[in-house]
């Protein structure tokens, strides 16, 4: 039988709140979509370029969307489908954050974060902690973004090529750190190979795909590169794990 706290967390009212989360994010996205299209036309950007960018984005989103779909399993089991939908579709989106915040909340309430252990009294505490710990992202994004272009001007100094190389270097820094943290660190500290094998094989697949697209003059091919790289990386990562498991 469904525990009382889960019945509340999955009640129709919570689903409606979930649709508020998703709805506001979608309306916001539509607002910016119209603004971007209008501005792109004002700048005389080719319609095909904008169409192609949108199409490439949908295709590229398939892999990460599948990841979100699978990651959601954990949240659905831990906190119910309605809350998982609200938080994953338009809140933090990081399963790691949600589970850590939920665990802090459950610990503060003195209960374990399990289906049987959670209580009705602990539920609002878990939800408060989840909200307080994450609303700051929306606040800083909403309030400070208007000043961020100044940072861009400062770095770029009106030189588009300079800005491009700085952006490439910064993104390599951000993604290089993520690669290190999730793939290189486990290898160095624990001798674990699957993650680094996944990264390297995905990287090789990406390089071959992108280079081939350039070589044969079919830039459209590039929109599939991440999907292809993810399939290759996940396949070899899992193969390595199976091969190394006694």
């Amino acid at each position: 039988m469904e525990p009382e706290w889960l019945r509340m967390a999955s009640s129709p009212g919570m689903w409606i709140i979930g649709f508020f989360f998703a709805g506001n994010a979608l309306v916001c996205s539509y607002f910016f979509y119209r603004l971007a299209k209008k501005t792109g036309r004002r700048m005389k950007m080719k319609e095909e370029v904008m169409h192609e960018a949108l199409k490439a984005s949908f295709i590229t989103s398939l892999g990460p969307a599948m990841g979100a779909f699978v990651g959601l399993t954990v949240m659905v089991i831990a906190l119910g489908g309605a809350y998982a939908f609200a938080r994953e579709s338009a809140a933090v989106g990081s399963i790691m954050y949600e589970l850590i915040a939920a665990r802090f909340g459950a610990e503060a309430a003195g209960v374990p974060l399990t289906r049987e252990g959670m209580t009705v009294a602990a539920l609002p505490i878990v939800f408060w902690i989840g909200a307080i710990g994450s609303f700051g992202w929306v606040l800083t994004g909403g309030v400070f973004t208007r000043w961020l272009p100044k940072l861009k001007d400062l770095l770029g100094g009106g030189d588009v090529k300079r800005l491009q190389i700085i952006t490439v270097a910064m993104m390599l820094g951000a993604f290089g750190r993520m690669l290190t943290n999730q793939s290189i660190r486990p290898l160095i500290t624990k001798g674990q190979w699957p993650a680094i094998v996944a990264s390297i094989t995905a990287g090789i697949a990406a390089a071959i795909w992108l280079k081939t697209a350039d070589k044969i003059g079919k830039p459209n091919m590039k929109e599939y590169f991440l999907v292809v790289a993810l399939i290759v990386g996940m396949f070899f990562g899992q193969l390595t794990r199976l091969a190394m498991t006694p």
């Binding site: 990841g67 993604f175 992108l210 993810l230 996940m234």
Partner: peptide, 24 residues
């Protein structure tokens, strides 16, 4: 099949680092 998704993020980082690395 589900366990393979443990390697989704390492694969994303590998592919995107290479995408930018091809620039420089």
């Amino acid at each position: 099949f589900l366990a393979a998704f443990d390697w989704l993020l390492p694969s994303i980082w590998g592919a995107i680092v290479i995408q930018f690395a091809l620039r420089k």
